[in-house]
Amino acid sequence: MAQQQAEQTKIPVLPYSLIVGQASLKLALELAYIMPRLGGVLLSGHRGTGKSTAVRAFAQMVYDGELPVTLPINATEDRVVGGWDVREMLQKNPKWKDGLLLEATNKLLYVDEINLLDDHIVNIILDVTATGKLVVARDGNSESYDVPFTLVGTMNPEEGGLRPQLLDRFGLMVNVTTEQDATARLQALKNVLTFEDEWAKREAGENSTFLDNAEAQGRELFDQLKSAQEEMRKVNADKILPLCVALATEFKVEGNRGERVLAMAARAYAAKENQSEVTADHVAKVAPLALQHRRPTMAQNNEAVWSPDDDEQVQQVIEKVG
């Protein structure tokens, strides 16, 4: 593990504090960390919007420099759920090797290009996220494990969507778009290119104040998130529960997962804002993240759409419920 971590430090990943804009994306990742029971985040967006970079940067910040446990599109079933270690088997030394789902326990499981994943693998993830349990019954091994993890998936909707069942397993969804503000775009470009230069300097054995500062800012943000995670249970959410139900009803969300996620996300957001009580504003802020992929229209589209009209509708419900 130490060797793997040492290897990871050699992989250049843009520090989280250098990611410019992308407020919704960042908010969703941070809420999922504060409240792991939210059930993960789906980042859907067109190419080049920095989805993967953001996930890796976030994981590196909150998991002590470690990259997220990643499920690549080349993964086979035995590596997902676990199987015999082939190298050991050939030496007549049967040894079980845990799969990625178990490896991700209490961590972040990142699935890049989740819509390109083999259907069979998607079904396995679906089962595990639905029950929180991994049942391994293969190759003569039969075990059951509790596997709480935060599932983070990225996808480009140009290559097809996800089934509604899998969409529903993601607590929050972000429709990632490119930052349109010219100043922010400029800053993003500068950050990326400066990072590349500074990384090269550091690899050459030189000091980099730029990277040191960025990492210090990351640690500061992480401390805030950790504190919010610890304080979250003290945040009172009683008053907004009827509002969550009303919003889920208004947006025709099937089942009751929508309102639960909405309430949890609002509570996590209030904790992040260092508030002791969840307000309607907190709910309004997280409503797009919790509801947009659960609306019936999503079945007909690969992309979730949340318009200013939807925000207006949220405000109307807030006024109505009081």
Binding site: Q4, Q8, G83, W84
Partner: peptide, 14 residues
């Protein structure tokens, strides 16, 4: 991509 990953048939590499 910054990091490549292989998870196939008992083999794991990053």
């Amino acid at each position: 991509t910054e990091v490549a990953q292989l998870e196939r048939y008992g083999h794991q590499a990053r």
